[in-house]
Design a protein around this nucleic acid. Sequence first.
DNA 1: CTTGGAATGTCAACAAGGCTGACGTATATT
DNA 2: AATATACGTCAGCCTTGTTGACATTCCAAG
Lengths: 166, 166
Amino acid sequence: MAERQQNSDSPRFSSDEQLKQGIEAMFFAYRGFTADPDRILAKIAYGRAHHRAIHFIARSPGTTVNNLMSILGVTKQSLNRVLRTLIQDGLVLSRQGSVDRRERRLTLTDKGSDLERQLSDAQRTRMRAAYDKAGPEAVDGFRKVLEAMMDPEMRHKYHAVRENGT
Amino acid sequence: MAERQQNSDSPRFSSDEQLKQGIEAMFFAYRGFTADPDRILAKIAYGRAHHRAIHFIARSPGTTVNNLMSILGVTKQSLNRVLRTLIQDGLVLSRQGSVDRRERRLTLTDKGSDLERQLSDAQRTRMRAAYDKAGPEAVDGFRKVLEAMMDPEMRHKYHAVRENGT
DNA sequence: CTTGGAATGTCAACAAGGCTGACGTATATT
DNA sequence: AATATACGTCAGCCTTGTTGACATTCCAAG
């Protein structure tokens, strides 16, 4: 067994125990990950589904319903219910596409952007604290492992969003 | 708008873009994380809630309902609904506590252990692949960042479970 | 121009799994 | 004896996912 000494504890290879710890870390961390936005959303009677929609519309303004469906991995009915309330409440704007007029191009209104910023700030504050605490090398590893955990299809969407977003 | 120069390949500090990528990575990775167990659970008409209960009962055999509630972060009513079906289906055993007889001590039956192993195997297979692909240093960073993301209370439970589990 | 298919919206019904509130019972603690 | 704790359970509500069915709009091929 090739021993690569490098950590404080003893994770030299991926024993089942190491893997279980990783699994539990994902579980507990994801709770923290959503906790702050969830608190904000609860106040205004929205849920996590609204947050996800808002996030990816902000990320790729002008995205279509179909695209959003495939990114979020939900049915159009499920997504539509969320979008409807967001449109009614004046957070999201749905305009007919100019080239293909069957499509709806989704963007955030100013009000929607405000909420997005609020949610994003809350979530990023925690992420930033975690990043700072763990250090830049850890962050690099964090992202590497997460990316390796994704389904290939999701990995593709992950990169696609980044291209669009920057 | 003061735009900070940020390239996608040089995470020297936590720009908002870096943080957003981390947020999206968590989102997409968590989907992968749950995908394999979900497929197994769907076949037998169980959900993620059942998986979580089974996982932590396996991890800390003889745990109480109260303890499980606090680890999973759900109400007793919600947990009870899940536990009831698991007990009825003969996957979980609930025995009266010997020292405090108000408590119920929860353990897995053989049948329950079988399912646990099946779910765990599926999840660990993906984790192992991700760990191997990312490398040991990345894994270390991965765990560091996740731990830093947890609520302090959850971090405590994360460690408590590990003591018990090993 | 007609028609097929794609993209979208919408209605209805259902399920899982959260939640709160209320109540009952057994057991411990004071 | 009184109070507190651990647990189970009933009832009702919400969010968010699912299927299935059907209407509309519009592009593109014939």
